[in-house]
Design a protein around this nucleic acid. Sequence first.
DNA 1: CAGTGGTCTAGACCACAAT
DNA 2: TTGTGGTCTAGACCACTGA
Lengths: 251, 251
Amino acid sequence: MIQYSKIAKVIEERIKNHIYPPFMKIPTQQQLADEFGTSRMTVKKAIDSLIYLGLLVSIRGSGTYVMSNPIANELDFSGKSYLGLSATMQGKGRNLSSKVIAFEHVFPDNLQQKRLLLNETDPVYRIIRLRCLDGEPYTLEYTHMPIGIIPGLNAEVLTHSIYSYIQNDLGLRIGSSYRVIRANIPDAYDRKYLECSDNDPVLEIEQVVYLDNGMPFEYSRSRHRYDKGGVSVNNQVTQMDKTFTWKKKDF
Amino acid sequence: MIQYSKIAKVIEERIKNHIYPPFMKIPTQQQLADEFGTSRMTVKKAIDSLIYLGLLVSIRGSGTYVMSNPIANELDFSGKSYLGLSATMQGKGRNLSSKVIAFEHVFPDNLQQKRLLLNETDPVYRIIRLRCLDGEPYTLEYTHMPIGIIPGLNAEVLTHSIYSYIQNDLGLRIGSSYRVIRANIPDAYDRKYLECSDNDPVLEIEQVVYLDNGMPFEYSRSRHRYDKGGVSVNNQVTQMDKTFTWKKKDF
DNA sequence: CAGTGGTCTAGACCACAAT
DNA sequence: TTGTGGTCTAGACCACTGA
């Protein structure tokens, strides 16, 4: 494993075990560099990754401190997650099952061509799955993926984890995603499969997911029951954002 | 301005002006280092910040490429934004107005004490504002802030931008935030102020915002009309996430 | 003032992609 | 094999905090 990742894991463990309790000032970068027998730059990279996760905060001239906890509850899933719903819920000890409602090979419409950078003659899978959490309807997913990029999808894979298949069987790596989160009115499918009443809102997540070479491989819309949790997002302001903010003295 | 930020701005301009068009391989880190008269590490930091923003993707052994565009539309606001709604909408050329519905000094309840790390005797502002976009109801904000951290708030500030006041008048800097995004059923206030019908869902954003020293200064719930856009989130998988994914061969 | 984190250098070695 | 990005070093200087 990469050196700064190893150091970050050790520090993360110390935070979780309260060896570094909330609000504690942790050792200086130089002290940690000495402890791990590495350079200060490498320690800083480890610390930066934990700042990104919201576990630490560094203050120049003062030190690095353990952050307090986020507001997310157990059912919310992270806006930073890419492992797919199966792995996310497995990590939380929940039982996720999938029922395939539609699975076919089609040609992409204009929107899908644009999102997935395809021609109208490039075939895609059209997949509709109902995901149930501990036996209760949780989310209805409408997924389109290019067959050329993700070959060999079948019903067996769909009832388990597409993301596991992509990463472990095809050996592809996921790089980034764009998501838009909205509230919406339930439609006939939501009422039928998510068992929404006419007034129950749905939480819709539209996303494009890219491989680590920048190629889009999934365009999907997921419609969630509103009472089954939300999406959590945590963000750190980068140095560039601070500089930008700094300049905005004019209004 | 910091050197890598300057370099990042130049590269960002080149992307926006299509000097580096979508999917183009940009010059190597070494070439850019020579061009800007700096070291490769500094160029890499600039590139990393643009990868974080979703503008570039680097592939080891191959090169760095301009990413294709996100799905966000103009009315969605970014999950990465901290400048407050006023600055966000000003940046988009929209006209935002604020109507103060409630403004008082109160003592925090249990939840607010926990989120803002306060005692029950530490006074907070309780603020309810209706934000209108181009004259139409947009979002209803319920905000609590510790008076001790943000002194001197008044009606004048509330009708303009609290964030501008915090940064420009108080000289404080915003560091990070945690958000949870949900769909919900409209309540009486939503129907009255957002002019929701009984069936219109609302998009609720609960957030805690921290100063750059890690101190929480805002706890708020914002309820948006569902037809006025959503929240966009873009994410890059970090090297650590990749390592984690890599190890998950077992399910 | 001393201590701390942020940035930067000028190299080096390695992993990986493309040929 | 060559070129590229990822990581790492051992120092340096600066900006900022806090005594």
